[in-house]
């Protein structure tokens, strides 16, 4: 089957800085694919090369089998992109801007489709407001509508939920799922790892312009070497008991919770035996499910969630 997106040895430099280095990946039609990475990993540059905002130094991008440089008039119609930066034209209202955007793609205005986007993204009460009077969240919703107005087959969302409230995130993801179910392939980047875990069938992780992982989400999660054990204590501790320091014991919540990071080969029996010898007053034990955060940390050495607001 022709891939929805095929990136073939893609490279891009800005002066001496290499933003994307020899990146190759394929996204199959119908997928929701996550592209993760810390700030400066090259995610937005990659998206900009796919959409035509950025020129390609080396390599190629094909959308549904068509080269994005040679057949740009076709591929740009197939792609809808919501960029990370909020970009609006201050001269026009939401309604008019959507009509204009549809025309830019050579697609006659489809009133029913426009009305659906407006309704589903909660833009109805704000249709005739000038763009500069909209809140940040509304502008983001508008940008999603703008990316979809020409009915693309590949939807690219670059940090669509950055800085938006929980309710919008929920409705936005629900809508993206429905779009996906109706045949739209989705490529998304997000700093919210739990969103990537829930939404994406496969995830690629970039770091320093390179691809460091590309696997189905479940397999990626299973790659974590070791697991965490959380001990909820009746009596708070001042310091980690010496026998537990080997397991990177860390005190949390004012000493009421002790986190142990156990290597993969450590048996739980051994752990319980050692805890019993220490006679700690343990109220509860918890084995949290490993998340992408851990995978990410392991692969890149960077903590993604502390870097949420930055951009590349």
């Amino acid at each position: 089957m022709t891939p929805a997106l095929e990136i073939d040895h893609l490279s891009k430099s800005f002066g001496a800085a290499e933003a994307v280095k020899d990146l190759s990946l394929r996204i199959e039609p119908g997928e929701i694919f996550g592209l993760l990475g810390p700030n400066g990993a090259g995610k937005s540059t990659t998206i900009n090369m796919i959409s035509g905002v950025c020129r390609i130094d080396r390599g190629a991008v094909r959308v549904f089998g068509h080269d994005t440089v040679r057949r740009y008039r076709l591929t740009r119609r197939l792609v809808g992109v919501m960029h990370q930066e909020v970009v609006t034209d201050h001269f026009f209202t939401i309604d008019l801007a959507l009509k204009i955007h549809s025309g830019y793609y050579g697609v006659p205005d489809d009133r029913a489709w426009r009305a659906l986007l407006i309704e589903r993204l909660g833009l109805s009460p704000h249709l005739h407001k000038p763009m500069h009077k909209l809140s940040g969240g509304l502008k983001r919703r508008f940008m999603v509508a703008k990316a979809l107005i020409h009915k693309p087959q590949l939807l690219i969302l670059d940090e669509p939920t950055a800085g938006v409230d929980v309710e919008l995130r929920r409705t936005l993801w629900q809508f993206v799922r429905e779009m996906n179910a109706s045949g739209t392939t989705v490529l998304l980047t997000t700093h919210y790892l739990e969103e990537a875990e829930q939404m994406c069938g496969r995830i690629a992780i970039m770091n320093g312009g390179r691809l460091v992982a590309l696997e189905p989400t479940e397999e990626l999660l299973s790659r974590i070497d070791g697991r965490s054990l959380l001990l909820h204590l009746e009596v708070p501790l001042d310091q980690v008991p010496a026998p537990l320091t080997a397991w990177n014991g860390q005190l949390e919540q004012g000493g009421r919770r002790l986190r142990l990071c156990l290597p993969g080969e450590t048996s739980m029996g051994e752990v319980l035996q050692r805890l019993s010898q220490l006679q700690l007053s343990i109220r509860d034990l918890e084995r949290p499910r490993p998340g992408l955060e851990e995978v990410f940390l392991q692969l890149t050495g960077l903590n993604l969630t502390t870097n949420q607001e930055g951009s590349q």
Binding site: F92, G103, G106, V107, P108, A112, K151, A181
Partner: peptide, 27 residues
């Protein structure tokens, strides 16, 4: 609903030009 509406429409090659012209005049 989305399925029904999400059908690609015919591409009109001169429409991007006409739209930009109209937008510039409106501006």
């Amino acid at each position: 609903m989305i399925d029904r509406l999400h059908q690609p429409r015919r591409f009109i090659s001169w429409l991007p030009f006409a739209t930009l012209l109209q937008k510039e005049v409106r501006r």
